[in-house]
Amino acid sequence: MSETFKVRVNQLPVIEVPADGSQSLLEALEAAGIETRYHCRTGFCGACRSKLHEGEVEYVNDPLAYIRPGEVLPCICIAKSDLILDH
């Protein structure tokens, strides 16, 4: 059993996402059956912009969309800890 992080999105039941960075956060949400918002999936349009309440993410690509403090772009980041977010 590989390691996972616990992610709570929009106060839905907690889901588990792989901790090895094999999926972007957006892909992990999709795999868990959560309805996602996205367009470009490469970090420039900002359509997937989400609010991160708790936890840490790491960007695998340079985000081009404007990110205000507390916001993340799930399409180009991976979870680095357990997370609580609004998507």
Partner: peptide, 30 residues
Amino acid sequence: NLRMQAIGLDPQYNQTSNPLPWMNKYLVSD
């Protein structure tokens, strides 16, 4: 709604889910 939030305005409409989900696949840059 999405675009308004992006510039710091409050979303004004009730439509929170995407009524045309197939649109996304045409908007993916890859």
